[in-house]
Simulated assay, not measured.
Amino acid sequence: MTVVPISSAVMTHPVRERQAQELVSRLRLGGLALDPAPHDPPSALRTALVAWSAVSPGAGHHLVVQDDVSAPPDLLALVGRAVERFPDEALVFYTNWHARNGSASRLAALAGAAWVRAVPEEFTPSLAVCLPVALAAEFGAFARDSAERHDDEVLSGFFRTKGRMSLLAVPNVVEHIGTSSINGHAAQGIRLAVCPMDATDADGLLRRGWVLEELDWLPYMRYGEGYLRLPGQEKAADGGRGHIRWRDALPAIARSSQLTEERVRDLVAEHMPLGLATDVARTFGPDFAEELWVHCLFMGRQAAGAAHRHAPQNAAGPADVVDEDALARLKEAAVSTVGPAGLSPERRPEAGPEKIRLMTEFAWTAIRAGERLWQDAPDG
């Protein structure tokens, strides 16, 4: 196996310097990238520019990790094997459970994919990102004069200019810790990985699993309500950042999906399990229970379609077979986060282990119904 030289840095602020240094020591990373102006208004980009410029001589790739994460001791080795497979890609090793990219990762997991192309209009999850050093230098030049303070937004802006968004690792071995935010994200509440996985399982999947490049329409949830991202939405006047409720989006996909609001209502009446729905509604309300079930119905349908259309074309190689048990665990991990991630931030602390198990069981009933829906009436 080729050894890919990777340098690394942990971006941090002096108030977290001790925490960051412990992370460097535990993961054997290159060193700290400290905020150069810690007394100025918060700016993740200011620190990110330091981190992305801290490339070691001779390195072919550079990994930047933020200070508020946990990760396995062999993270660098896992990243190195991913870089060997995708030497020219921007690789992202953590994705938020509540974002559009989180839903893309969750859908990819259900389709059986190990990587998914990020959506163009959303921020790039920047807790653990690896770039080829030439691309890192280009990003530094692109971002140097930006007035934006969020590095995740500027990363996406940069990738859009390149015409190629990052590849998201569907199994996440990097996890966000804490809810505080130097850069103003605390209002988003509990923010965790979309598909948390053991490093051994994740490594095998990332080395051999296929890549989901095309998402078609994408269901996602935010603040307890379901939405659909439409194909080509990034070309809209607002850059695609607007949110379209699923009822309003259905007419745009009715011909290809054979779904109408009336049809969805019929499916809810026919297949949503009343007992589980009542149990979810008891804590989080009937509206949330129904929105979650409809969202998972859409997700199951789209995952089944994506697997049918794309899986045979994107395998790592004919001799590479993923561990089916690991893949099953990935799917379970993905579905386990759909309930709490779909809640509004102030309600997420109510989702303890029992509530998560309940929402996961409930979500699976909708996913299975969605899979059957696609099998009965696949897209043309």
Rank of each mutant, 00 (worst) to 15 (best):
P5Q: 02
I6F: 04
S8M: 08
M11E: 13
P14I: 11
V15E: 15
E17A: 14
R18P: 00
R18N: 13
A20D: 08
Q21V: 04
Q21F: 09
L23Q: 04
L23V: 01
V24N: 04
V24C: 01
S25T: 15
S25H: 15
R26F: 13
R28S: 15
G30T: 05
G30R: 03
A33D: 07
A33P: 06
L34F: 12
L34K: 10
L34N: 04
P36I: 07
P36V: 01
A37N: 13
P38H: 00
D40Y: 12
P41M: 01
P41K: 08
P41V: 07
P42L: 08
S43W: 05
S43C: 07
L45D: 00
R46T: 05
T47D: 09
A48V: 07
A48Y: 04
V50K: 10
W52I: 09
W52V: 08
S53P: 08
A54H: 12
A54E: 11
S56Q: 15
S56K: 14
A59C: 01
A59S: 06
G60M: 09
G60E: 14
G60A: 11
G60I: 03
G60P: 08
L63E: 06
V64D: 04
V64L: 07
V64C: 03
Q66G: 14
D67M: 08
D67P: 03
D68G: 09
V69C: 10
V69N: 04
A71Q: 09
P72R: 03
L75N: 05
L75R: 08
L75D: 08
L76S: 12
A77N: 12
A77E: 15
A77F: 08
A77G: 12
L78N: 08
L78F: 03
V79D: 09
R81Y: 02
A82M: 11
V83E: 05
E84S: 13
R85I: 06
P87D: 05
E89P: 01
A90Q: 06
A90F: 09
A90D: 11
L91A: 00
V92F: 03
F93W: 03
Y94E: 15
T95R: 01
N96M: 03
N101H: 08
N101W: 03
G102L: 02
S103M: 06
S103F: 14
A104G: 01
S105T: 12
S105K: 02
S105H: 00
R106N: 10
A109P: 01
A109V: 11
A109E: 02
A109R: 01
L110A: 01
L110W: 04
A111K: 00
A111H: 02
A114L: 01
A114R: 00
A118D: 05
V119T: 10
V119L: 10
P120F: 02
E122T: 12
T124F: 00
T124R: 01
T124E: 06
P125Y: 04
S126L: 03
L127V: 12
V129D: 09
C130D: 07
C130N: 06
L131F: 04
P132C: 02
V133D: 06
V133I: 11
L135M: 15
A136F: 11
A136G: 06
A137C: 08
A137K: 13
G140H: 05
F142A: 03
D145W: 10
S146E: 10
